[in-house]
Design a protein around this nucleic acid. Sequence first.
DNA 1: GTGGTCTAGACCACA
DNA 2: GTGGTCTAGACCACT
Lengths: 123, 123, 123, 123
Amino acid sequence: MPWDLKSDRPIYPQLIEQIELMIFSGTYPPGSKLPSVRDMAQDAAVNPNTMQRALARLEEDGLINTHRTSGRSITEDVNMIKNSKSKLVEEQIREFLEKMQKMGFDQNEILMSITSMVEGAKQ
Amino acid sequence: MPWDLKSDRPIYPQLIEQIELMIFSGTYPPGSKLPSVRDMAQDAAVNPNTMQRALARLEEDGLINTHRTSGRSITEDVNMIKNSKSKLVEEQIREFLEKMQKMGFDQNEILMSITSMVEGAKQ
Amino acid sequence: MPWDLKSDRPIYPQLIEQIELMIFSGTYPPGSKLPSVRDMAQDAAVNPNTMQRALARLEEDGLINTHRTSGRSITEDVNMIKNSKSKLVEEQIREFLEKMQKMGFDQNEILMSITSMVEGAKQ
Amino acid sequence: MPWDLKSDRPIYPQLIEQIELMIFSGTYPPGSKLPSVRDMAQDAAVNPNTMQRALARLEEDGLINTHRTSGRSITEDVNMIKNSKSKLVEEQIREFLEKMQKMGFDQNEILMSITSMVEGAKQ
DNA sequence: GTGGTCTAGACCACA
DNA sequence: GTGGTCTAGACCACT
């Protein structure tokens, strides 16, 4: 995983976002065990405290469970994952559309520009 | 103008973005005069210094000119505005696509979900 | 005369400097009559008040005389001009040397780099 | 460090210049850690915000890196420092020559006056 | 303790 | 009245 972290924003929300993406995309499947905090921190070249904080936040949201003895794992509640995922997707789309509309694009123009960029990327 | 400022991010970049949107959408046409810093700050319910910071950045980027004692105006360089606008549009789309792909959507799925949301909004 | 005025600094000191240079270089010889404030302002594309202010300052310094009825003229006191000039020259050189020394150039290096740039310009 | 700040010009560009000089002269070597904003501000007898502004500009220019919570350091990119330095040197010389020429000095005269002042300083 | 942001309020130069 | 700068002081997020 690339772990592209930019320094113009706090690290830990970036970690949260990227771990969420990995859960939603199935890189970390439901029920699977997560690496240790230390390993994940090292992998992301980040202070363990920071990674810890990100994981704690994900646990609050219910995406991750902590087992006293055996580390952390992704929740097995597939519906919860699905819901979180579609909530995020919807929000992404909504924000995107809003910005484009504020710049004066109507719905057809938005669809056309995104289509053309997708086509461009295919080549 | 709504000036919706969220508290999870510094204010001044949000001001920059929203003023850019107003320039790109023609709310502030090329060459038009801007209100005084103090007026804009009051309108956005923000400290004049904060608004000043945003405007200073926009001037560095060339979208705004300041006339020492007679206020600021939008640049008359329509091409510069156009370029900035398409750069922003492209970046928005690119970031959006990237996130969706990281969540496992392929290009058809992306187009379909956005289309369905656009259709939903139409009603 | 080019009248190159930059907008990152107040206009009137720039006017002062440039008029001084024109006096020191003989563009305005000792005793010669100056154009009217309005004409000079128009020539420099500047508000007449601003030009007025610059000229007033030059008069304070003694480089310019105002004759109630017949406009302004350069002082006839050639020594005064010479003194101002050499004071300015010395200051320019002193500031220049100081900066170069702060950057770690010793005197030989300073002479060499300036010589090479002069040689470069000759070609 | 003397931190000589004159009141005829905004403080923060003066801070920028002087810090640049300290970087170029090796007072702050490449990769070295800078004092905290507050310490530097106190040292220069300046408000922390003002110092912050100067440092932020230096970071934009790439001469300084900031590490979110552990202070700032000079870039380790020696070439970038070298380039900035020679750009500054060239600009200094160019501006100096231009002014001297506008006052009617030809190239020999410029070299002679600066040589004599250097010789004078040696004694 | 670090950098970053924001506010409030003041002063200045300019036209 | 305009933009620009500066100060003082506060709060926040992060490690």
